[in-house]
């Protein structure tokens, strides 16, 4: 403890003016030595005032400026990125629309071609059927004509035969009109 007292004495010597007010008695607890208060307060006022000036006038505006500038750059870059993303999205959408359009168009063309081919085929078929029908009709006509002719011949042969039979049986040549009427009646009957 002697060492400590020695040091305190040294300190007292250093702050002679301070300890003079203290009545020169042994070192009290330094933080409670009221004769050092004025010096500390003056120093503190000057030091803190200086710090406040430096901080408020120079340091904070500068650091704040750096931070604000960075924020601005970040915002600009983010906006740019968002814009680019929107652009690429739009391009993708346009591409997809284009693709869908092309696909629809291709489908339409395919359908058109198919329909055209179908129509041509249908037409050819119809034409063929028509010609076949015409030919068939003509053939039927021919058959009917031939048959009518043949039937007409049959009629006259039957009339002749009937006349000959009647003449042979009765010896009387029958009236042609009566024979025809009788034939017609028998054909109908």
């Amino acid at each position: 403890m002697a060492e400590g007292q020695g040091k305190s004495k040294g300190a007292d010597h250093g702050t002679a003016a301070h300890t003079a007010a203290d009545g020169g008695h042994k070192a009290s607890f330094p933080p409670f030595e009221s004769n050092t208060f004025a010096s500390q307060l003056v120093s503190f006022a000057i030091a803190f005032g200086l710090l406040y000036l430096i901080v408020s006038r120079l340091a904070l505006p500068r650091v704040g400026g750096v931070l604000a500038a960075r924020q601005q750059v970040l915002d600009t870059d983010l906006n740019e990125a968002a814009k680019l993303k929107a652009d690429s999205d739009a391009a993708l959408k346009a591409y997809e629309t284009e693709l869908a359009n092309a696909r629809a168009k291709a489908q339409a063309m395919a359908t058109e071609v198919r329909e055209k081919l179908n129509a041509e085929q249908e037409a050819a078929k119809a034409k063929l059927e028509e010609s076949l029908a015409t030919k068939l009709a003509a053939a039927e006509q021919t058959i009917a004509t031939t048959r009518a002719t043949a039937m007409g011949n049959v009629h006259s042969i039957a009339a002749d035969t009937a006349s000959a039979i009647v003449e042979r049986l009765t010896g009387i040549s029958p009236d042609a009109g009566a024979v025809n009427a009788a034939l017609d009646a028998s054909v109908k009957g």
Binding site: M1, E3, G4, Q5, K7, S8, A11, G14, T15, A16, A17, H18, A27, F29, P30, P31, E33, T36, S39, Q40, V42
Partner: peptide, 17 residues
């Protein structure tokens, strides 16, 4: 033993006024 209070002592460097 070192005085634990010694570190808090205030020394005058020069007089301002």
């Amino acid at each position: 033993m070192a005085d634990p209070i010694h570190q808090f002592e205030i020394h005058k460097i020069f007089t301002l006024g």
